[in-house]
Amino acid sequence: MLFDVRLPIGLLFLGIGVLVTGAGLMGDPAVFRAHSAGLNIDVAWGLVMGGFGVIMLLLAGLAKRKAPPADGES
């Protein structure tokens, strides 16, 4: 593989997760009650996405440590 696609996926999801969780923490609780069935979906799903991003980054890191840096595509 040219580069591990899990790396950009992990970074993007971590970034979006932080943004969405932040929006949820700063948002007006009344909006969530009216909008999303009483659940602060921003915080809940923001954490899920951020967590997924971290897992992807860990997997990419593990793969890199296991395989010595290959010359060319592997």
Binding site: I16, V20, V31, S36, I41, D42
Partner: peptide, 11 residues
């Protein structure tokens, strides 16, 4: 549009 507030709307 109905369920997603700002934040999730972007997602």
């Amino acid at each position: 549009l109905r369920y997603f507030p700002t934040g999730m709307l972007g997602v």
